[in-house]
Design a protein around this nucleic acid. Structure first.
Lengths: 231, 231
DNA sequence: GTGCGCATGTTTGTATACAATCATGTTGCA
DNA sequence: TGCAACATGATTGTATACAAACATGCGCAC
């Protein structure tokens, strides 16, 4: 599983950066110099700029004119807003998914949950969080509403960053249980319950965050990126 | 009101192109050649590419690799999805706006409605549609939910394109009446009614579209852009 | 000693040049 | 006559060069 593959293209760079942000290798507020990124990934600034623009559009990086790009630092109100929007949208996707989910969808979601459990058991909370996000994404896809699914996907990506910032370690992430319940509602085609569970799940997620204090931890860029993603 | 102002910067080009799309000067499916746009606006392809990327992110243009940029042609299912998403999100914004709207908000919205009436009376349906979109945008801002407001803004922009494609002339746009009712609910702080009215309003909008057949009408690029926006 | 102003280096913004890919029209062969 | 392969032109993808703005540090004046 050595990720020695050469990263290429705008989308590749954008994906690599996004992954680095989600894995908390790039801390919020960290400067993303164009020359540095270009050298790290072995491409020109043209590509880097396009990738940064793409990420900025998803609110993962903050682009300041003549100042440069920085990893976004979602504010507390932004954190609340994102999860409120998710509750609104995903209540709908959960409902639709409960109505539409076929056996193969159930199986796929179950596999996600299993993988999540495994990652959690292995102590890889980073991967567990990633899979958790993917789970929500999968639900949005099953709902067969591409427009809403796309918005949900963006919000999930932002959530990942928000969690990276405001996560308080003491609250155990027992969400896999919530996911399991959700899956049960899908299997039973119980739309009302699915909607309710999803809203409760997202509410739990918000309350598990520490939305009072803010922190920051800038570090070295090249170091953070060297261990993964680059050639 | 001569728009002889020099358009500059990525955002300027993007805004000009977006306006041209909304005003139906750029028809869906029309090719947006980088060299052409660069020459029309007097900038380099670098700027044009960035602007096109931005519009592509909002689904206003379709970017095909090694093929070029084209004005988006929203499909019928996409049209339905966009308005369904709007109904979901704007039901919330309408509710929040009803709860939070102050006198100055009411006044601003009333001014919007008046302007809309005036444009309609003057036969400028294009401007009326633009103002109608702005009205919805204003509501989202009053709701004080920046995240949702931003999503709504994007959906409104897409709606504008959708309306340009699927509008059937025979259905009179009596929406200003709906807007007036909505305003009444805001003034009365009747959240339930506001939510209901908004959903009904958007539902009416969808049904006023012709979502059965599809059409297309490509034309000349420079001609379409020459009359407005460029220096 | 402190604060302002300037000089210098670094970084971003923009334009242009080159490479790669795609579209098109022509020519040769069946 | 029809189709296929190729040559050619046009357009996009990428890299690089230049210009402008910002940040930093030093020196000088107060």
């Amino acid at each position: 599983m050595s990720s020695e593959q050469q990263i290429t293209g705008v989308d590749g760079i954008a994906a690599a950066l996004e992954q680095a942000i989600h894995e908390h290798r790039l801390s919020p507020g960290m400067k993303l110099g164009e020359d540095d990124l270009a050298e790290v990934y072995g491409v020109s600034r043209t590509i880097v700029r396009a990738a940064l623009q793409s990420l900025a559009h998803n609110r993962l990086v903050d682009l300041r004119r003549n100042r440069g790009a920085f990893v976004a630092q979602p504010s507390i109100v932004e954190a609340r807003e994102v999860f409120e929007a998710r509750a609104l949208l995903e209540a709908r996707t959960a409902r639709s998914a409960a109505e539409r989910a076929g056996p193969e969808d159930i199986a796929r979601l179950q596999a996600h949950i299993d993988a999540e459990h495994a990652a959690l058991a292995a102590g890889d909370t980073g991967r567990a969080l990633h899979l958790s996000g993917q789970f929500h994404n999968e639900i949005a896809e099953i709902a067969d509403q591409a427009t809403i699914a796309e918005m949900v996907a963006r919000l999930i990506a932002r959530s990942s960053l928000i969690i990276a910032v405001y996560w308080q370690r003491r609250s155990a992430l027992c969400e896999s249980h919530a996911h399991h319940e959700l899956l049960g509602a899908f299997a039973a085609h119980d739309a009302d319950r699915a909607e309710e569970l999803m809203q409760g799940h997202l509410l739990d997620l918000v309350t598990s965050l520490d939305l009072r204090s803010d922190r920051s931890a800038p570090a070295s860029l090249r170091e953070a990126l060297a261990q993964g993603g680059a050639a």
